[in-house]
């Protein structure tokens, strides 16, 4: 952190955005002018002006793969914390096992962590999730860390480059949920390195040339 890093344009709530383009996410229009709704990074993509928040909670979107923690059991469903403002119910019909009525605790109990998909969201903010899809399962062992959901794309990198690099250097298995929950499994040293790298990504998400710096960090750590 010695040399000065180039930083992306940061905007604050209510700041006018004087950039050509159509209003996209994180932007609102008043009297024909665009303003930022968040403290975030200005991002112009495909003719749309977006503001990517620097922090904030996860807003579920249909089709997102998320990592959730079971917080409660009911005879016909589990209640899952997916780091959103609302808990998500997981119905017994949405899991890959045949569950008898009242027998939910035999399959998933409180504190278990699952990889699931958001199957539906309605305008009231209610969320339904499913595990009935290949690849979705209960995550056993490993470590869980949380980051700001808006920084998930930076952890994954362009075309998965960042996450692939982390996996290659540390031989860890990593799952990144769209909700900002990350599951890591591997050797203790590997896990520590991955957590350090992810915290570094989180703190420097708004700078340029991040992948190179993380690569440098991993190479140093391996010695």
């Amino acid at each position: 952190m010695e040399e000065k890093k180039r930083v992306r344009d940061i905007v604050v709530p209510g700041e006018e955005i004087r950039v050509e383009g159509k209003p996209g996410r994180g932007v609102f229009v008043e009297n024909g002018k665009m303003y930022s709704a968040y403290l975030g990074i200005l991002d112009v993509r495909a003719g749309y002006v977006n503001v990517i928040p620097l922090s904030g909670c996860y807003i579920p979107k249909k089709g997102d793969k998320v990592i959730g923690k079971i917080v409660d059991l009911a005879p016909m469903n589990w209640v899952v914390d997916i780091n959103a403002p609302y808990y998500a119910p997981l119905h017994v019909n949405d899991v890959p096992w045949r569950v008898e009525f009242g027998d939910t605790g035999r399959f998933l109990s409180i504190g278990d962590v699952i990889l699931a998909k958001v199957s539906n969201v309605n305008e009231l903010g209610q969320v339904w999730i499913t595990m009935k899809e290949p690849g979705l399962r209960k995550l056993e062992g490993g470590h869980i860390i949380k980051i700001a959901p808006s920084k998930v794309p930076r952890v994954i990198g362009k075309g998965g480059s960042m996450i692939q690099m982390l996996k290659d250097y540390t031989n860890c298995r990593i799952y990144v949920g769209q909700n900002g929950m990350i599951w890591i499994s591997g050797s203790p040293d590997g896990i520590i390195t991955v957590i350090k790298a992810i915290r570094m990504i989180e703190n420097e998400a708004h700078t340029y040339g991040l992948t190179d710096r993380i690569k440098e960090f991993l190479e140093r750590g391996e010695e």
């Binding site: 604050v12 709530p13 209510g14 994180g26 968040y38 928040p53």
Partner: peptide, 11 residues
């Protein structure tokens, strides 16, 4: 509020 990433019309 701005730090928490809550959308606002203005500071």
């Amino acid at each position: 509020l701005a730090d928490a990433g809550i959308p606002m019309r203005d500071l």
